[in-house]
Design a protein around this nucleic acid. Structure first.
Lengths: 208, 208
DNA sequence: GCAAGTAACCTACTCCAGGTAAGGTGGACG
DNA sequence: CGTCCACCTTACCTGGAGTAGGTTACTTGC
């Protein structure tokens, strides 16, 4: 009887790492579809084709599962934005624009899942809120550090404030782009540049 | 026996409107303290000094209660920002700054409760997400309309994008101010002005 | 003053989803 | 070919959202 289950790909045993990846993938889908609160661990388990205690074995709790998803996305986001800005390190304007483009491209690629995570996650509990906040702080920090390399003598407080504004503005704009569907990352970045570059440049010291 | 309950202010019957206001007040507190998910209707009911079915009688569901809180805050926010910009209608720069100050003042006044609501609410379900989104759209719209009054010939798309960026940047900056604790609304507004005014002005046509 | 009506309120439940205890199963390795 | 461990399951507990139905006290017409 256990033989020849035609279509169904016969329940497989998997090594932990692989199962974890698969679970996170499914979880991201389900969270995106239903929203975190409405998503049930039973459904995620069922879609993975595994029983609920496995999820708890590997992630500890529903929130833990969400945190794992966010953490992975966050690492990816840091990688792409940092690489983009580093590639054009000699020119602040180009670097800034490249970072923006990379950010918006990431948002587009991860589509619904990322929007929902980024706008939804905080409600859950301190753990998750911290995790989402960490994503923003990481980006804020990247921007702040990059700027202060170009403008060492500007007050740190002002730079931090600018970084917050940039991150918040980008996040909102990314959501807006997703809603409209017809805005490219380059166009989005251009909007940010138009609105902010002039003010940013003026606050930085004279170019070398 | 029903007489002389010394300290406890003897359970009072209240008209619906008053009870509703009181419930929303308590709910805002509890949501802020525990976060939406962790907050329990039983606790809210107990703190109000009333039984759970009353909450359901008046608000329908836990999410309904949250929605009511947000909706009230939203009306208040619209009022203060619209009034502030209208007061200086002849000068765009002053109007913009006044609106910013009013926004940040509101964020400060509502403190933790507002931050949590604004950053937490979306996770709950479509109802709440829509409600929070409506707050932002309301502000976005206000900004967009105000701008297009000054710059009728600028493409609507660009104006909308700017409005989104402004709203997102302000939201993030407000949270940052709350975290630091020592930033006044005026200073916050000044940060936004420094970063954005120059770009905004250049995108608008020559001043009258 | 008093019956009648209704708005405010309560007790006592159901049900669902997060989380857990305790135990099967199959392949790797001596 | 036995035994060990990682992978996996069934069957349960618990707490909080939501509800059915009854009770109390305030108002209103006479």
């Amino acid at each position: 009887m256990t033989t020849s289950e035609q279509a169904t790909p016969r329940k497989r045993r998997m090594p932990r790492a692989e199962r974890e990846r698969q679970m996170m993938e499914v979880a991201e889908e389900v969270f995106a579809e239903r929203g975190y609160v409405a998503a049930s661990m039973d459904e995620i388990a069922e879609r993975v084709g595994v029983s609920k205690p496995m999820l708890y074995e590997y992630f500890g709790s529903k929130e833990g599962l969400l945190v794992a998803c966010i953490r992975q996305a966050r690492a990816e986001l840091l990688r792409v934005t940092a690489e983009a800005t580093a590639a054009a390190a000699n020119d602040p304007e180009t670097a800034f624009r490249a970072g923006l483009v990379a950010y918006f491209r990431f948002a587009v690629d991860h589509g619904v899942a990322w929007s929902l995570l980024s706008s939804e996650a905080a409600v859950v509990g301190p753990q998750t809120a911290d995790e989402v906040e960490a994503v923003r702080q990481q980006q804020t920090n990247l921007i702040s550090v990059t700027m202060s390399a170009y403008a060492p003598e500007v007050a740190q407080g002002a730079l931090d404030a600018f970084a917050e504004i940039i991150v918040g503005g980008c996040e909102r704009l990314a959501l807006w782009c997703g809603r409209r569907g017809d805005v490219t990352p380059e166009q989005a970045a251009e909007h940010i540049m138009r609105l902010m570059w002039s003010g940013l440049k003026d606050s930085l010291p004279a170019e070398k």
